[in-house]
Amino acid sequence: MSRAGAWRLGILGGAVALLELLCRLGAIKKITMIPPSEMALALGRLMAGPAMWPHAAKTFGNVAWAFLIAVLAGATIGVVLHALPGLRRALDPWLATWYAVPVFVFYPLFIVLFGMGDAPIIAIAFLFSVAAMTIATLDGLGRIPRVLRKTARVHRLTPIERALRIDLPSAFPYLLTGVKLALAYAFIGVIASEFILSGFGLGHEISFAYNNFDNRTMYGLMLFLLTAVVLINLVVQRIERRELRRRGR
């Protein structure tokens, strides 16, 4: 293990141990936080029981839909905007301010448009993550070296050939960054919506446990959700790193 890795493990381990100690000694009250060991126990109990899984399936399913639609739509919008520089220039400042819009306010509108159920939440998470993918696609297409475009012209590639052999491979690292961000934003969108608006899903379960002072369930669910998100992100990051290495960057 690298020196930095050892330090990191030591500091994180030390923080958990300190938290455990403070909770056990009563310096942190039980109503505020339960000791990390009990959080792990609560997590184990939740995972063994049947109550949590339908909510987890709902949350992860919604994230998957929002993420998939956002990646496809974001890439398409990116390609279209790249092909129409005038439109792109006009929309650029709006893309840059996108994340300043509190998209949750559109929940009532989406309920009228799509009805009750999962669609409004997926729509909010989609709006949240589509901009990241669009920006990343534009970035990637904008940074294709000019020599590659000229080579494509010299070889008289058709637009489709050029897209597959030049544009896609060359923009790929940026697209991956977009995919990574879109996934993170899809999670944030779905869980925040469940938290404040919906009546189902892990986000709602956490907020429900909080409102009922059920700290065990709350911390167990938090641990489950955060561990799952970190693991998924690690997998995506590993794929990204492998791709970048393969491309010799």
């Binding site: 690298s2 990191r8 936080m33 993170a184 869980i191 986000g203 959700l225 998100v229």
Partner: peptide, 25 residues
């Protein structure tokens, strides 16, 4: 080097999850 992976992991967490802790603290 010690902090960076922790920070990038934290950046992509849905931090709403942690709001109840903030309220309790």
């Amino acid at each position: 080097e010690v902090a960076e992976p922790v920070l990038t992991a934290f950046a992509s967490l849905p931090k709403v999850t942690l709001y109840p802790i903030m309220l309790l603290v």
